[in-house]
Design a protein around this nucleic acid. Structure first.
Length: 627
DNA sequence: GCAAGGTC
């Protein structure tokens, strides 16, 4: 009888896809007791190497199996001073709703020679793999443990991964374990401290949970930071010289090289010199081909940012819809940082699937008839998932309005990636008038290419410029001074916030939208609609509580050396760097946990000592509101 | 009653 190999993926969809490829489509499906989503797939497969011909059970978990929590005597909020949570004993347990899944793995492990882990090849996946390993070892202490290295579920790629098992990366699993412990201890300690202290200060806070998290606070910080810049903005008047010329029935506006100055007298003098000179001379006539690049393959962050901008949905809604489309098999996995397509993916086949569409099917056909181009490659690869792309065509009348919008965006973006850049001709005219230089730019779009399918990008032919010869002189039709005022920045929008979070390493592609929802839910931030109709944008404004917390914490650390406010992203960034050190093997999990706890403990002690700063800020912003 | 990270 052949030996048995137990394969475990991170989610049911991957288990099914891998089972389909390894079995060539013929496998038996068994439900498991206690969970409707997880299935066991059974089939035969020849792994080659030392395993050879085997029977296989392919199953999955559903994300992490376990959670970390404090021992029972520390769970009550009054059971200990919040500072004790930095050292309180913690234990890791299988989540209650995951018990049947863990049981399934233990049972299956008993009959298996080896455990073959198929979790995503990212840091969290490595930790989930370790959780799976622990369960399997509970069922069968002598089980051999391997993991598959794969980054998508394309058939050839999966088959190759199956025949080249590697080892689980203990370092990465440890880095995640450190992150989990730090988030729990720091989050719980600060949340209890500030909730218990501030609830008593103002009546409006009496029943509120005032949570702290290493991601939610920097998220709040970005919103408050922009809000304060808007509030503190003082407009300044500036002046500029504007030169126009009417020729061949066209009006050319020349822009000043200095753009504008804040000194009216100086600008007046400069204009006078222009007028005295009378004639302007053409110093440059540049004609050069210009192109507008097609977009990069689609990542989660980009989907959320572009989605908020063009589809008018908030990032959480977009993700929910994208997940639905994924589960139904219309698009690929929507949580990815990868903006480069693997060579193994047959992109043309995916393009062909879009032929039936009445809106962009013809465009897809044109691609296959010769216009297809290999997509650009971005710099990011999470080694776990391909960029987001359509995997099957779906008739629009099978989708609701929002689903239609998101699917259409994913499809058009994918086709745009496989297209040629847009081509045009740019003209730049520079003139010298008096002592000043001015320029005018023109653009003619020659080939729209990807713009025809990617309706979200605009690249218009600006007015065609009349002809100019280098060194010719002319008398401008008009030259005068224009006045303007600097304008305040706008409040932060959700796509901007996601961009800031991404750049500062706050949250992951899968969680950024959740953190934004969390700060809204905690009433630190409220959304507000700016503008009307098609131009409406949702902007984020901090509440009085949100402002009070940031101001309070900034005051707590003000004047202290090396203490960085909790409202800033730096502490979280430092934690991230230490996790990378664990991954590189240069630091141990214990060292990082201790070092990071020391860092946060210092801020915690300052906060306790100067808690009055937080209370003062809450009274300042919240008392009159309560009255 | 606290976090952030997986995923349904």
């Amino acid at each position: 009888m052949a030996r048995k190999i137990l394969c475990v993926a991170e989610k049911p969809a991957i288990a099914r896809a891998v089972a389909t490829h390894l079995s060539g489509g013929s496998f038996q499906t068994h439900a498991i007791r206690g969970n409707p989503y997880v299935k066991n797939y059974e089939f035969n497969f020849n792994f080659g190497g030392s395993w050879g011909d085997c029977t296989v059970t392919m199953t999955s978990v559903i994300g992490h199996l376990t959670g970390l929590d404090f021992e029972r005597q520390y769970k009550g909020w009054m059971s200990c001073p919040p500072s004790a949570l930095f050292e309180a004993p913690v234990h890791e347990d299988v989540d209650k709703d995951k018990l049947p899944i863990a049981e399934n793995i233990r049972t299956q492990a008993q009959y298996s020679k080896a455990l073959f882990i198929w979790t995503d090849c990212d840091r969290e996946g490595e930790h989930i793999g370790a959780e799976v390993r622990n369960q399997a070892k509970n069922g069968n202490a002598r089980i051999e443990v391997k993991r598959a290295k794969f980054s998508n579920t394309e058939r050839a790629h999966v088959l190759q991964a199956a025949r080249q098992p590697v080892e689980l990366d203990e370092y990465q699993a440890n880095a995640v374990a450190a992150r989990i412990e730090l988030d729990l201890r720091i989050g719980a300690a600060f949340t209890r401290l500030q909730t218990l202290q501030l609830q008593a200060v103002v009546s409006v806070l009496k029943d509120k949970i005032i949570s702290y998290g290493s991601c939610q606070f920097p998220t709040l910080g970005f919103v408050v930071d922009r809000y304060l810049r808007v509030q503190n903005f003082k407009p300044e008047t500036f002046w500029a010289i504007k030169v126009t010329l009417k020729r061949e029935g066209k009006t050319v506006n020349f822009l000043w090289r200095r753009v504008h100055l804040f000194d009216r007298a100086a600008v007046t003098m400069m204009l006078e010199r222009c007028l005295i000179a009378k004639e302007a001379r053409v110093t440059k006539v540049n004609k050069k081909p210009k192109s507008k690049w097609r977009p990069l393959p689609l990542t989660t962050v980009d989907l959320q940012m572009m989605g908020s901008r063009f589809l008018r949905m908030d990032s959480q809604t977009i993700m929910k819809i994208a997940e639905g489309l994924y589960t139904k098999g219309y698009i690929s996995y929507p949580r990815t940082e990868t903006d480069q397509f693997d060579k193994a993916i047959d992109l043309k086949k995916l393009v062909e699937k879009q032929f039936p569409d009445s809106a962009w099917g013809q465009y897809a056909r044109d691609l296959i008839d010769g216009k297809f181009r290999t997509p650009r490659s971005g710099r990011n690869n999470d080694q776990a998932h391909p960029p987001i792309h359509p995997v099957a065509w779906v008739s629009p009348n099978q989708l609701n309005a929002n689903e239609k919008k998101v699917y259409e965006f994913v499809a058009r973006r994918f086709l745009a990636c496989c297209s040629e850049d847009a081509k045009g001709q740019g003209t730049e005219i520079e003139i010298k008038y008096g002592d000043e230089f001015f320029h005018a730019n023109g653009l003619i779009v020659l080939e729209r290419n990807y713009l025809d399918v990617y309706v979200y990008d605009k690249w218009e032919s600006s007015q065609q410029l009349p002809n100019f010869e280098k060194d010719e002189t002319f008398q401008p039709t008009e030259a005068n001074i224009s006045e303007g005022k600097t304008t305040a920045p706008n409040y932060l929008t959700e796509p901007e916030l996601i961009g800031l979070m991404d750049a500062n390493g706050i949250g992951t592609d899968a969680t950024m939208a959740e953190h934004i929802a969390k700060v809204k839910d905690r009433e630190y931030v409220v959304p507000n609609k700016r503008g009307t109709g098609r131009n409406a944008v949702e902007e984020l404004i901090p509440t009085r509580l949100g402002i009070a917390l940031v101001e309070g914490y900034d005051n707590v650390v003000a004047g202290l050396p090396n203490s960085i406010s909790l409202s800033k992203p730096f502490l979280r960034k430092e934690m991230e760097l230490r996790m990378l050190e664990i991954c590189a093997g240069t630091k141990s999990r214990q060292d990082v946990v201790q070092q990071s706890l020391d860092m946060y403990r210092e801020v915690f002690i300052h906060t306790q000592r100067r808690i009055e700063m937080l209370k003062v800020a809450c009274r300042k912003y919240l008392v009159e509101e309560a009255a």
